[in-house]
């Protein structure tokens, strides 16, 4: 890759957190470090991963709203937690988590337990309790909307 070919396909996936470093050759064939704000193929792969996560989260949300499963299911899908990982984070047995996935049990959780879940999911207890609202906000994050944006430039050159 030549220095002037280092892509700058910024789709705001760095979340306003600066650029990443790449290696490329200058006009004399010497390696130099160049900052890049993104590259279309890799952006596509990352956005695809989020589209997949969001699809699973939406499916979970439908089951939550139908009362088949507790709101934990949505946050687990969205946060990529399976029961084993969540059990490790909360330091409680897996069967407890499976129990809390029952809507009735979830409604009776105390604040301490809700706090543990909220911490693992990186949200506040309020956001966990008001899960419907939170779900709407999370599903609207800009980088979740990959497949819906058709007007975007191609930009993989």
């Amino acid at each position: 890759m030549k220095r002037e070919q280092v892509p700058q396909d910024d789709e705001n996936l760095m979340d306003g957190r600066g650029r990443e470093l790449c290696y490329a050759v200058d006009e004399n064939g010497n390696y130099v470090q160049v900052l890049s704000s993104g590259w279309a193929p890799k952006n596509a792969a990352l956005l695809q991963a989020w589209a997949q996560i969001n699809e699973e989260a939406k499916e979970a949300l439908i089951r939550v709203k139908a009362g088949k499963v507790s709101p934990l299911a949505f946050f687990m899908a969205r946060g990529m937690f399976d029961v084993a990982l969540l059990s490790a984070y909360l330091d409680i047995p897996k069967r407890n988590i499976r129990a809390h996935l029952e809507p009735d049990n979830f409604r009776h959780l105390d604040d301490a337990m809700l706090g543990k879940y909220a911490e693992a999911f990186n949200i506040s207890v309020d956001e966990l309790v008001n899960w419907s609202e939170t779900a709407n906000i999370l599903l609207k994050e800009k980088w979740s909307e990959f497949l819906r944006k058709d007007s975007r430039r191609d930009g993989d050159e």
Partner: peptide, 14 residues
């Protein structure tokens, strides 16, 4: 997508 992320995501320098 997974393959490309392993190949290009932050950290590989390209």
């Amino acid at each position: 997508g997974h393959f490309i992320r392993m190949q290009e995501e932050i950290g590989t320098g390209g």
